[in-house]
Design a protein around this nucleic acid. Structure first.
Length: 785
DNA sequence: GCGAATATCCTTTTT
DNA sequence: GGATATTCGC
C-alpha cells in the first residue's frame, strides 16, 4: 500500500500557506451577507442551500481560497468533489484566477468518479484487482451480462441484459454488494438478480475491470473493512466540500460520511429543487437529512438571484410550488420584472421547430423590438434527446448555425471504440471484452464458431481470452485461414505490448502502428461506404488527442471518465441540449419546447416512479425556466411523430401550473381549444389554487390533469396533416375492437381480450394480461384475425 | 462466414 | 423513423 508520505511528496503543496495568510482578503468584500457567512464558517458542518443563480460556485470557490489564505489547509488537504468534469474544471480555473496562479497543488478537486479511481488505483489489491484495471462502459457491461444470461440458459429476449444492468447499477448506487442485497429485492430479474450480480462481480475481477458503480462501491467497501486506510484519508483531507449535494446517491453519501466522520469539516452545497438525477440513484433525502447527520450544522440559504428577471423567477416559483417536502427557499431579485414568460402552442413538432427558428433569427436581428441577441446567448432545452432532430433538420435547411451539447459523443463512435479496444488489449491483456470486440474486426474469418471455440478453451484452462486464442491456434482447434490470421493478431498484441513497455517510441507512434499493423486502418480505406473517409479522419483525430496524455492507459482512463466533448469554437451558434445537460448553465434567451404530457413530464418517469417521478419532472421544469436570464419561451405541439407514427399530444400539466400573471400567451385563441389565460372562455376558473395543488394526492388526480382530459374533446387538432394511419382518439371509449392489436407506452404490444367502457383488458406480449384505460393505448397497423 | 434484406424493438435523463 | 437483431442466400 502506498504511504501518505509518498502522496505528500508527489502532490505536495506548491503554495506557501504562510505567505498567503499575511495577504489581505479583498475577495470577501465581493460577497453578499449570506455568501460571506458560508465562506467564513470554515470549521464544522455547513449546508449551503443555494437556489438557482445565487452565486453558489462563487461562494464555493471563494471558500477554497479562504481556506488557503487563512492557512487552514494546504491545497492538497482539501477534498473538493463535483459531479461533472465541467464543474471541476470551472472551479479549478476560478480558484486559480483568484489566487493569481495555477492550482497545480489541488489534486483532490475533481468528480466523485475521478477521485475514486485515483484512490482505487492505490488500493486496488484490497478489492482483488490490479492497479491497471480497466473501466468498462455501459456497452461492455451489457455485453458481459448478456454472456452470463445466455450461459445460464435464460431467454435474453424476455429478460434483457439492459434491464439487469440497470438493476445492478441501482444496487451499486445504493452501496449494496451482492451479499447485502435486501431480501425484498430477491424477486428482481426472474428471482435470479443477486445470483447474476455475484457472477458478474466475479467476472469483472477476472477481467481486471470495474464498472462505473464499482468505483464508489469498492472504495466504500475498502474504507469499511480497512479502518487504517480510512484513517489515513480522514487525516489527510482536513476540509471537504461537495457541490450539487442533492445529486449524491447512497454510495457517494457513505463515502463522504466516512471521510468526514472524524473532523466533520464538511461543507455541502446544493438545491433540493434542482435534484433531477433520482433515476440515477440520487437521493434528495441526503440533503434533506443533512442537519440530522451532522448535528449543529450551520445552514445558510442563498436566495438572492443574480440571473433572471422577476417574471421568470415568479413563473419558476409557481411551478415548483407544486412539490411537497421542500426545504423551502424564495428567490428574489432586484433586477426588475422584465418580460413575461411566453407561451405558444403549435400544430406539430415541425411547425414548432420552424417557429423557433424564425424567432431566433428575429431576436438575432433585434427585430423583436429588443436589442439584438447573439446566437451564443440562446439555447433550446429539450426533455429527451430525440426531440433535437426536428431542430437540427430545420436549422440545417435554413442555415442557422447550432451546436448540440452532450449529443452523440466522439468516443462513442464505432471506429473510435474499435480503436480503443485495440489499445485496451495492448494495455491490459486480461481485457477479454476488448479482445472480443476486435478479434474479427477487420474480418479475419473468425465467426461465431471460432469465437466460441476460443471462449471454451479459455474457460477450460482458466486463462484470459488472448491466452485461450493462443492455445486454440497451437492446438489446431481453429481451421482454415482464420488460424493464421488469429496467430498474427495474438502475436501482434504481444509485440505492441512489448513496444509499449520498452518505451522506445511515443505512444502516439505506437497507436498508429497498432492501427496500421492490425489492418484496422486498411479496413476503412477499402470500405466504399461514403462515410469511411470521415471515419479515417476521426481515427486521425483520435491519435492526435493522445498528444495530451502520457501514455495509452492515461488516455483510456480519461476517455472513460471525462466523456465531455464540448469543443469550444468561437463561432456564434444556438445551443441545443437536454434539460439535464443545461443544469448550471444560463442564457439570455431560452426556448423550452415540447411541453406535452407524456413527453414532459415523461410518461415513463411517472409510470416508474409515480408521484416521486412527477415531482422530479417538475424540478426539471424549474431548472429549465431558471436557465433563462431575460426571455423564456415555452411551447408545445398538438401532434408529434412518435416512432414514426403520428400521435396527438396534450399540453403539459406544468403549463397549467404557470402563474397567469407572469405569462404572456402567444397562441392565437382557438388553436388549442383555449384553457390557458385570457384566451379561454371561463379563464378565471382555469388556474387551480395553491391549496388544490398541495392537497393533490397523486399526479393523475391533479386539477391540471383532469382539466386536460376534460378539454381533450375540444382540441380540433387531432387530425394529422397526412392522415396516414392511427391517431389516438382521445375521447373515444369504444373505438377498439376485440382482438385488435394495440400499443401501450409501458407494456408494449398486445391484443385486446376484453372491453369494458373506457377500460380494456389487453394481453400484452411482454407484460401479460393487464387492465388499462383505453386512452393509454393506441391502435396499430396490424389487422387482427 | 459474410453481407444484404428483413423483422423488431424502441426513446428519458448520464458520471 | 432509425438502430440493432435475425434470417437467408451465397
Amino acid at each position: 500500500m502506498s504511504s501518505f508520505d509518498e502522496m505528500d511528496a508527489f502532490e505536495g503543496a506548491s503554495l506557501s500557506s504562510r505567505a498567503m495568510a499575511a495577504r489581505p482578503m479583498p475577495y470577501l468584500d465581493t460577497l453578499n451577507p449570506a455568501q460571506r457567512e458560508a465562506v467564513e464558517c470554515l470549521d464544522g458542518p455547513v449546508l449551503m442551500l443555494a437556489g438557482a443563480g445565487t452565486g453558489k460556485t462563487k461562494a464555493l470557490t471563494t471558500r477554497i481560497v479562504h481556506l488557503l489564505s487563512t492557512g487552514k489547509a494546504r491545497p492538497n488537504e482539501i477534498l473538493s468533489v463535483t459531479f461533472t468534469n465541467k464543474a471541476a474544471r470551472e472551479m479549478k480555473e476560478r480558484v486559480g484566477g483568484m489566487l493569481g496562479q495555477a492550482v497545480e497543488g489541488m489534486p483532490w478537486l475533481g468528480t466523485f468518479h475521478s477521485i475514486c479511481v485515483k484512490q482505487l488505483r492505490r488500493h486496488a489489491e484490497l478489492a482483488g484487482l490490479k492497479s491497471n484495471f480497466t473501466i468498462l462502459d455501459t456497452d461492455d457491461q451489457i455485453r458481459l451480462l448478456k454472456q452470463l444470461i445466455q450461459a445460464a440458459g435464460i431467454d435474453d429476449k424476455r429478460w434483457p441484459a439492459r434491464m439487469l444492468a440497470n438493476i445492478i447499477d441501482d444496487w451499486k448506487n445504493r452501496a449494496l454488494t451482492p451479499d447485502k442485497v435486501p431480501v425484498a429485492d430477491a424477486g428482481a430479474y426472474n428471482s435470479r438478480g443477486t445470483e447474476f450480480y455475484a457472477q458478474y462481480q466475479t467476472r469483472l475481477r477476472e477481467l481486471n475491470a470495474v464498472d462505473f458503480g464499482d468505483l464508489l462501491l469498492h472504495m466504500v467497501t475498502i474504507f469499511q473493512s480497512h479502518p487504517d486506510v480510512l484513517e489515513q484519508y480522514q487525516r489527510w483531507f482536513r476540509y471537504i466540500m461537495v457541490d450539487e449535494y442533492q445529486d449524491t446517491n447512497v454510495a457517494q453519501y457513505l463515502w463522504l460520511r466516512l471521510l468526514a466522520g472524524a473532523h466533520k469539516n464538511v461543507c455541502c452545497v446544493g438545491d433540493d429543487d434542482q435534484s433531477i438525477y433520482g433515476w440515477r440513484g440520487a437521493e434528495v433525502g441526503n440533503i434533506l437529512r443533512f442537519e440530522k447527520d451532522f448535528p449543529g450544522a450551520m445552514v445558510v440559504r442563498l436566495e438572492q438571484n443574480y440571473r433572471s428577471t422577476g417574471h421568470i423567477l415568479a413563473a419558476a416559483a409557481g411551478v415548483i410550488r407544486g412539490n411537497a417536502g421542500r426545504l423551502g427557499k424564495e428567490l428574489w431579485t432586484d433586477a426588475g420584472d422584465g418580460e413575461k414568460v411566453r407561451l405558444i402552442g403549435h400544430w406539430d413538432g415541425e411547425e414548432e421547430a420552424r417557429w423557433i427558428g424564425e424567432e431566433i433569427e428575429a431576436m438575432q436581428r433585434g427585430t423583436r423590438g429588443q436589442s439584438p441577441i447573439g446566437l451564443n446567448s440562446m439555447a433550446i432545452l429539450v426533455r429527451a434527446s430525440h426531440q433535437m432532430r426536428a431542430f437540427e433538420d430545420r436549422f440545417l435547411t435554413i442555415g442557422l448555425p447550432y451546436r448540440v451539447i452532450g449529443g452523440p459523443r466522439f468516443y462513442e463512435r464505432l471506429e473510435i471504440r474499435d480503436a480503443m479496444a485495440y489499445f485496451r488489449v495492448v494495455v491490459s491483456p486480461d481485457d477479454g471484452l476488448a479482445f472480443e470486440r476486435i478479434v474479427n474486426t477487420p474480418k479475419r474469418g473468425l465467426g461465431d464458431k471460432a469465437q466460441q471455440t476460443i471462449q471454451m478453451i479459455a474457460r477450460e484452462n482458466g486463462v484470459s481470452l488472448i491466452e485461450g486464442a493462443t492455445l486454440a491456434v497451437e492446438g489446431g482447434h481453429i481451421k482454415g485461414k482464420g488460424a493464421g490470421k488469429l496467430r498474427e493478431l495474438v502475436e501482434g498484441i504481444a509485440r505492441w505490448g512489448r513496444m509499449a513497455g520498452d518505451g522506445d517510441i511515443s505512444h502516439m507512434e505506437l497507436a498508429e502502428i497498432i492501427l496500421d499493423e492490425s489492418g484496422y486502418t486498411a479496413h476503412w480505406q477499402n470500405d466504399k461506404n461514403p462515410d469511411s473517409p470521415g471515419r479515417l479522419e476521426n481515427l486521425k483525430e483520435l491519435v492526435k488527442a493522445l498528444e495530451n496524455f502520457e501514455n495509452l492507459q492515461g488516455f483510456l482512463e480519461h476517455v472513460s471518465l471525462v466523456m465531455d466533448n464540448d469543443k469550444q469554437d468561437a463561432d456564434e451558434k444556438v445551443s441545443i441540449m437536454t434539460l439535464h445537460a443545461a443544469k448550471g448553465l444560463e442564457f439570455p434567451a431560452v426556448f423550452l419546447p415540447g411541453w406535452e404530457d407524456g413527453l414532459f413530464p415523461s410518461q415513463r418517469s411517472m409510470d416508474e416512479s409515480g408521484l416521486k417521478g412527477l415531482e422530479e419532472e417538475r424540478r426539471l421544469a424549474y431548472v429549465g425556466i431558471t436557465r433563462a436570464e431575460e426571455i423564456c419561451t415555452i411551447s408545445f405541439a398538438g401532434n408529434r411523430r412518435v416512432f414514426g407514427q403520428w400521435q396527438s399530444q396534450l399540453p403539459s400539466r406544468f403549463i397549467d401550473e404557470l402563474p397567469e400573471d407572469h405569462v404572456e400567451v402567444l397562441t392565437p385563441p382557438g388553436l388549442y381549444g383555449g384553457g390557458y389565460g385570457a384566451a379561454a372562455p371561463g379563464a378565471g376558473q382555469v388556474r387551480s389554487t395553491i391549496e388544490e395543488k398541495v392537497a393533490q394526492a397523486d399526479g393523475y388526480n391533479s386539477p391540471g390533469w383532469k382539466r386536460m382530459q376534460a378539454r381533450a374533446g375540444q382540441y380540433g387538432m387531432s387530425q394529422p396533416k397526412e392522415s396516414k394511419n392511427t391517431v389516438i382518439d382521445l375521447t373515444a371509449t369504444s373505438s377498439f375492437t376485440l382482438g385488435e392489436r394495440v400499443f401501450h407506452q409501458k407494456f408494449g404490444y398486445g391484443a385486446i381480450t376484453g372491453i369494458e367502457g373506457d377500460k380494456l383488458e389487453v394481453d400484452f406480449e411482454k407484460a401479460g394480461t393487464k387492465k388499462v384505460v383505453a386512452r393509454f393505448v393506441s391502435a396499430t397497423d396490424d389487422v387482427p384475425f
